[in-house]
């Protein structure tokens, strides 16, 4: 680490490598030389306090009543980098009878600094119990994710519409 930091300033002062190809057909303007050097520049170090962000894999998930209903086994992330669902290893006794169930990301709440209750799920065990089991390799079929029940807004309400939720998974 120390050696790398010492080499840092020296690296940054190296002349940028010209990126434009000499025989290019299109008269492209001289490309800003960021592409090549950025890959060779040392990465920045940022710092995350334990209370700010923490790992969630394997951490216990508590239901609305506060009881531990399972542990996070996996996180499903989409193309844009947004987590869409978490897979929870749910239920059972000493590993016998546990099932993996995917729940939508907005149904989860996180408290990184709280080691007792790091992850809370808005859905009760009854709401998720009947979901089909999540399989990593589902043979190309879409995975079933349990979402929060669709909130029905009263007709006169001008409250912001809840984000369109997927209908609850049918077993």
């Amino acid at each position: 680490m120390i050696g790398y930091a010492l080499a840092g300033p020296a690296f940054a002062q190296a002349p940028p490598v010209p990126a434009a190809k000499p025989a290019a057909a299109t008269p492209a303007p001289a490309k800003p030389p960021e592409k090549a050097p950025a890959a060779t520049q040392p990465g920045q170090f940022k710092h995350l306090a334990a209370s700010e962000a923490a790992g969630i894999l394997g951490r216990p998930v508590r239901g609305p009543k506060g009881d531990i209903i399972g542990r996070i086994a996996n996180v499903l992330v989409d193309q844009a980098g947004h987590p869409r669902a978490a897979v929870i290893d749910f239920g059972g006794f000493m590993g016998v009878g546990s099932r993996k169930i995917a729940v939508e990301w907005p149904a989860l709440h996180f408290a990184p600094g709280n080691s007792d209750v790091p992850v809370t799920l808005d859905l009760s065990s009854d709401q998720i119990k009947a979901a089909p089991e999540y399989n990593d390799d589902n043979g190309g079929k879409p995975a079933t994710v349990v979402a929060k029940p669709h909130e029905t807004a009263p007709a006169a309400s001008v409250a912001t519409k809840p984000e369109p939720a997927k209908p609850p998974a049918t077993p």
Binding site: G63, G92, F93, V96, G97
Partner: peptide, 18 residues
């Protein structure tokens, strides 16, 4: 059996499975 019970009864199945 355990899986089927968990599917039917959720967390309440844990005690029965035990």
């Amino acid at each position: 059996l355990g899986s089927a019970l968990t599917r039917r009864d959720g967390m309440a199945a844990s005690a029965i499975i035990g």
